[in-house]
Design a protein around this nucleic acid. Structure first.
Lengths: 250, 250
DNA sequence: TAGGTTGTTCTCACATTGAGTTGTTCTCAG
DNA sequence: CTGAGAACAACTCAATGTGAGAACAACCTA
């Protein structure tokens, strides 16, 4: 910020009116499919469309605090379960015409959560729902939220490669197979079970054994699986390799 | 955004006063060292400190357009040379107290540019300068700009791994050695010349040969180097590996 | 012209990956 | 209770990629 800005700096009304909101792309895995928390709009613009949970940043709160608050309001989540949700900033969206009412800059966030209960009726989130991401067309979505969701999904896919955040989609204790299912769901690709197993255990700090095993084998048979919890690595070295998408041959 | 937000949605003055600015972490390489474009503040707060180039988003401009405009204003750059500068969004910074005057949310951007002339005297950027990043202490920097710069540097380091953006620090035609120097400068690590050469040429779409060579050999001898230009890949597969930093042993 | 420097190409040992196989433990159906 | 099928975990082996060093020719300066 330079000198002129400073001279104009004391009366907010000297500034162009810009509203700042936080929106949240909250992802979870249900029944083997990636789901997204959305809210059905009850008023124009985009009445009846689905929109990301979000709202205005409050004067005294940080951007990330605002995002976590919005997430709590719409999911009814609190305390420890809320704290275990991974939340990171995704990016800001501020095209002049993205909201027809006024200039709104939205700071989008990305959240990874274990399978959560449906948004509690009785909260102000009557029309909130977890929807499978594959069931969404951009036409059903309000504002530029289709774009934000696309960016969020791509970020999620790429974060699984080099961070241990896949564990955030699971309960604190999980099996390697459950972890693999997260990867397969988010990446949309089957993975080789043996190689995945070897890789996860060989990357330092990814997972650590609890010593325990599951009470029962899988629903359709198989031995009891060993249980693991997330390790203390924040970055995976070496990273997992996402199966290459088909490249356009040049 | 939900229903209540909509009901309040028509009069900007119903909103908390928030200003939105764009700041730019502009990086270039000069004399083998990574440099950063900074502006010396001429008025409080933080008078005499260095700050990132930036300013308010205009009512009719996109966030990225604002960032490019600020960059143009401070560097005196225009036309094709401005267009060749890589610009991407870095993240938004909005702690309630980051600016003592009022609530300011800054959308930071990251720019990679080839070695540029010093900011032209005569523009309004009298006190703009390219400074080596190693010469900066966080105490000399205004607001939370030290944090933003740190984030920008880490982003730059990591982007060189999996994108061909290192080429954006160079002129359109360059040698492999020049490209390697970019990596060594940004990563702060010497790289094995032979292995780097092999790697760059083996990753599809990273560089393509122009067929030409440099007019002369290096200043201290050696053969003429072949010239390359950036290929059309936007992502590098497989990525380059950044030499591992020393891990804290657990 | 000599000596040092640099761009480029090799070689080889080693680590990682992809794909498939094996053995064992478990659930379910009959 | 038993057999069939499923899943966890461990292995093998070929193919690929990497790190480290060496070779060699082209080029500069002195």
């Amino acid at each position: 910020m330079n000198e002129q800005d400073f001279l104009a700096g004391y009366d907010p009304r000297n500034y162009p009116a810009v509203a700042v909101t936080v929106d949240v792309v909250a992802l979870t895995i249900r029944e083997g499919a990636l789901h997204l928390l959305l809210i059905r709009r009850g008023a124009p613009p985009y009445e009846g469309h689905w929109a990301l949970p979000g709202g205005f940043v409050r004067p005294d709160e940080d951007l990330s605090a605002g995002a976590r608050r919005e997430l709590a309001e719409e999911t009814g989540l609190g305390g420890d379960r809320l704290r275990r949700v991974h939340l990171e900033q995704l990016g800001s969206y501020g095209s002049p015409d993205r909201d027809p009412r006024m200039r709104v800059v939205s700071v989008a966030h990305l959240a990874f959560a274990p399978d959560l209960p449906d948004p509690a009726a009785g909260t102000d989130a009557e029309d909130a729902a977890w929807l499978p991401v594959t069931a969404l067309t951009s036409r059903q979505l309000a504002f530029d939220h289709a774009r934000i969701i696309d960016d969020g999904l791509e970020r999620a896919r790429s974060k699984l490669e080099y961070t241990p955040l896949a564990t955030r989609f699971l309960e604190p204790e999980f099996t390697i197979t459950e972890l693999r299912a997260v990867y397969e769901t988010v990446w949309g690709h089957p993975l080789h079970a043996g190689n995945f197993h070897r890789k996860v255990l060989s990357v330092p700090g990814f997972v650590e054994s609890t010593g325990a095993s599951t009470e029962r084998g899988g629903a359709r048979g198989g031995p009891r699986a060993k249980l693991y919890r997330a390790g203390d690595a924040r970055l995976l070295h070496p990273a997992l390799l996402r199966p290459a998408r088909e490249e356009t041959v040049r």
